[in-house]
Design a protein around this nucleic acid. Structure first.
Length: 495
RNA sequence: GGGGCGUUGGUCUAUCGGUUAGGACGUCGGCCUUUCAAGCCGAAGAUGACGGGUUCGAUUCCCGUACGCCCUACCA
């Protein structure tokens, strides 16, 4: 290890919704940087003009903020090595590409896409590896090529990959990896539109931005020898490499929109807590030295080492994420939980857009009632909706079981409860007091407590399942209990 | 087709040559209990892909095979 400060980067492409893979890479890069007191940089790789999406760039940054993985340098943030958007660095790439051409490490290529396609087809038919045949390198003199470029002929710049030797590198996660140079294609460095390909841009930027460790997904392993060769051609010291495993779909293919949820917006909309997502992601491919399952970002940072990585690609299991999310929801203080749930309540139409303090206070109590049950924030509206609606719908099954037709003791039980609640001072509307009352009614009617509790729940909520009955009653309050009991008693007559 | 990377219960993982192969999610059962959850207890589920080596001893090291994945684009 050198004593230069650790600098790592993630370089997502702004081509759509912020991707869960970006969060995954971001998490480990962030943790590694923080572990060593280094910098975590965001760079936007927008060199593909076909797939570029203007709103995506900002969304990526927003998503990183949501996760708490704030870059130290990046677009909208700035930093000493900017700009951090590749399309704003075009002059740099052409400068360095020209340098390579001048040194004979790269060359102009005028082959059309059609010719390349034919060439590949022929190679495939012959059972050969599909590689550029170097026609423009072998049949054109450098002077001719330069003249054609000056004349405005469409062209690309290709790197001249050495045909001998082996490129080996030590991957921090996988150990030694080597490739035979002769099998590596002459990669296009500058496209016909003047934009660089990933390969050139990443090498130039990683060098210029003083990146010390290129830590990226496994899918990049095969192109690492190209990058290493570029570093050598430029005479630059290459960073260290670490290739993380790739997130997989259930069928083990690379995680995709088609089979799973790749958009970070989905997780947000689903009510997954960012800290739960981070914890879950940290469990994929990496493991805590004490085999802990639940730990926060700081603990990841403190324990982060490449040695604790697994090398095979983990399947992204939404069920486990949901469990973990439930753990985090339960661990939250109600005052921290409530603000996170409120938007979901508003969206479901349970709360109005700008709830007044009284409404918020009531909503908070409702949330507290069901806190231990939710595995995602989106579940709260269904869980608590009946508490906000005096004219809640009755579940058919529960009505059939307890209310209509009703066992003989139910009507007297509910009527008695109504009377006794009416007589109760507001200060006595507490879970404890209510429980005493309900249990005494059951006793006086000579039935088990459950025989009164269940129909009461049905009478007050229309449901068979719900929060603790007595706590729920206390939250509802006297007037509401009275209204609901009367409504149910009325409903029971109708059958 | 070529190259690279990988392979521990359905899923995520521990093990840095010696364990009854451990834990977590999920599943099933029990307890608790006013329901649902939560919590606690328990169970089922892995001949560690397969075959060879190396070794006193391999899930751990080496080789081969199979399978999966990634790359093989003027996409990243």
């Amino acid at each position: 290890m050198t004593d230069t400060p650790v600098r790592v980067r993630i370089a997502p492409s702004p081509t759509g919704d912020p991707h869960v893979g970006t969060a995954y890479m971001g998490l480990f890069n962030y943790a590694f940087a923080r572990h060593h007191g280094g910098q975590f940089i965001l760079r936007l790789d927008d060199t593909d003009r076909e797939r570029f999406n203007a709103t995506s760039a900002h969304a990526i940054l927003e998503a990183l903020r949501w996760l708490g993985l704030q870059p130290d340098e990046g677009p909208e943030i700035g930093g000493p090595y900017g700009p951090y958007v590749q399309s704003e660095r075009l002059a740099l790439y052409t400068h360095y590409a020209d340098q390579l051409v001048a040194a004979g490490h790269a060359y102009y290529c005028f082959c059309t896409k059609e010719r390349l396609a034919e060439m590949r087809a022929a190679q495939e038919a012959a059972g050969d590896a599909t590689m550029y045949d170097r026609r423009c390198l072998t049949t054109l003199t450098r002077e001719e090529a330069a003249r054609r470029v000056r004349d405005g002929a469409p062209h690309v710049i290709r790197m001249r990959m050495p045909r001998e030797g082996v490129t080996t590198f030590h991957d921090l996660i996988r150990g030694a990896v080597s490739f035979e140079n002769a099998l590596i294609d002459d990669q296009v460095l500058i496209k016909a539109d003047g934009f660089p390909t990933y390969h050139l841009a990443t090498v130039v930027d990683d060098h210029l931005m003083r990146i010390t460790h290129i830590t990226r997904a496994e899918e990049w392993i095969s192109s690492t020898p190209k990058h290493l060769t570029l570093f050598r051609m430029f005479g630059w010291e290459a960073p260290q490499f670490a290739h993380f495993p790739l997130l997989r779909n259930a069928d083990r293919s690379k995680i995709s929109k088609r089979q799973g949820h790749t958009s970070l917006h989905w997780y947000q909309a689903e009510g997954i807590l960012p800290e739960a997502l981070l914890n879950f992601l940290a469990l994929l491919g990496w493991s805590h030295p004490e085999e802990k399952e639940i730990f926060d970002l700081n603990e990841l940072i403190a324990n982060f080492t490449f040695e604790r990585f697994n090398t095979s690609g983990p399947v992204f299991d939404l069920e486990k994420l949901r469990w973990l999310n439930g753990v985090y929801i339960r661990a939250l203080a109600i005052d921290d939980l409530y603000p996170r749930v409120e938007p979901f309540l508003i969206k479901a139409g349970i709360l109005q857009a700008q709830p007044v303090p009284e409404e918020q206070a009531f909503a908070k109590q409702c949330i507290a009632l069901e806190q231990e049950k939710a595995r995602a924030l989106t579940e709260f509206p269904d869980l608590v909706s009946f508490l906000f609606n005096p004219n809640f719908p009755y579940d058919d099954e529960v009505v059939a079981q307890w209310l209509r037709p009703a066992p003989a003791h139910v009507r007297p039980a509910l009527s008695t409860l109504l009377e006794q609640v009416e007589a109760l001072p507001d200060a006595d509307i507490t879970a404890e007091r209510l429980e005493e009352i309900v249990r005494r009614i059951a006793e006086e009617l000579g039935v088990g407590a459950g025989k009164v509790i269940h129909p009461t729940r049905a009478a007050l909520s229309g449901r068979a399942k719900g929060p603790s009955l007595f706590h729920m009653m206390a939250v509802l309050g006297k007037a509401e209990i009275r209204y609901r009991l009367k409504r149910t008693l009325e409903m029971m007559k109708g059958g």
